[in-house]
Design a binder for these strands. Structure first.
Lengths: 188, 188
DNA sequence: TTATGTGCAAACAGTTTGCCCTATC
DNA sequence: GATAGGGCAAACTGTTTGCACATAA
């Protein structure tokens, strides 16, 4: 996606360099929550801040090492888990067997996955959540969270309305093989 | 759930026995689709037919071997995949990192997972799908399938309305540890 | 009889973890 | 300088697969 802008930041970020490169948005959040800020965390935070898609750990690792090679996958896993626990990140499962991440408070939104290309379109739906909350209440529950993904196929010709705000390239969501726990719903 | 009724069927099922034990509903579906009916498939089919919950492979394996010990996990995996491809079964992901299964055409319904107990309540919502289809269309997509799970917590006192139709005991859906790709949505 | 299914164990992918060194506060 | 974080590689979990044998049709 914005791999370009990420890579162009290439220089300082980690080290003992001149210009103090201002902290990324997520790095700032980390500091606020009192996390010890190491070089690798700063890099990962920057990658996450710059990401406009929903990268999986492998992709985060790739982008992070492009900025600073002394980062291991283990650290990416640990950091991503930490940030999720701190409420800074949110984990997603679009099928395909790997967790994918995006910063919290991108505003409440849902995802529509193009089953042919794996592209992810975000959309909002104000009423939806309220509706589900009501349903949960009717069943005697407080709604704590909800998960919803739509899987669709681009309708061919005729020009249709505007698309969502963010694209995404990582592997298609369909079930090729090796997709342990994915694709729920029926034929809709 | 109905482990009792499953176990009580114990006798024939597999073999060269007297009373021809009538085929389970799913076994019948298998025959209709031209699947070769082996002893183990018949057992697995029966377990699935009798299940009123959403067992994972481990649980299916446990129940199946209780009926007939000469079944391996590999076979359960293979069978479950086969049945899913044939549209007889549907795979679910309630978080917790293992796929869970239920027979197709239980009618269209959704799931509310009790985050404290892992219990799964089913509920219907006629409009919901139509609403999502409209949203997808607005984005230029045909809705192929959709996935939605609510995660909630039982509201304490006051007697509230009726619960759903099916309970479920297998491991809580929450994120204790070791849950690779699960729990999506935000704080709702 | 012949294509298909099964058991077993090894292989895999994604993720976690133990140990020991390093860096941050 | 004490304590939390990171690298590396080994361990784990859920799931798939290769192979030789068994079995339904």
């Amino acid at each position: 996606m914005n791999a370009r802008s990420i890579v162009s930041e290439d220089a300082p970020v980690h080290g003992t360099s001149a210009t103090p490169v201002q902290e990324s948005r997520i790095a700032r959040l980390c500091v606020e929550r009192g996390l010890k800020m190491t070089g690798q965390r700063r890099v990962i935070a920057r990658v996450l801040s710059d990401a406009e898609d929903h990268p999986d750990v492998e992709e985060l690792y790739r982008r992070a090492t492009a900025l600073d090679s002394r980062i291991s996958v283990a650290t990416v896993y640990r950091t991503v888990r930490l940030l999720e626990e701190k409420g800074i990140l949110e984990r997603r499962d679009f099928g395909g067997g790997r967790a994918r991440y995006e910063a919290s408070e991108h505003g409440r939104h849902y995802h529509l996955i193009d089953i042919d290309t794996g592209k992810v379109i975000e959309f909002e739906d104000e009423e939806h959540e309220a509706l589900m909350r009501r349903i949960a209440e009717r069943l005697g529950f407080d709604l704590i969270s909800l998960r919803m993904e739509l899987f669709g196929r681009r309708v061919p010709a005729q020009e249709s309305a505007s698309a969502g705000k963010a694209g995404d390239k990582a592997g298609a969501a369909g079930r090729e093989r090796k997709a342990p726990a994915a694709l729920g719903g029926g034929k809709a």
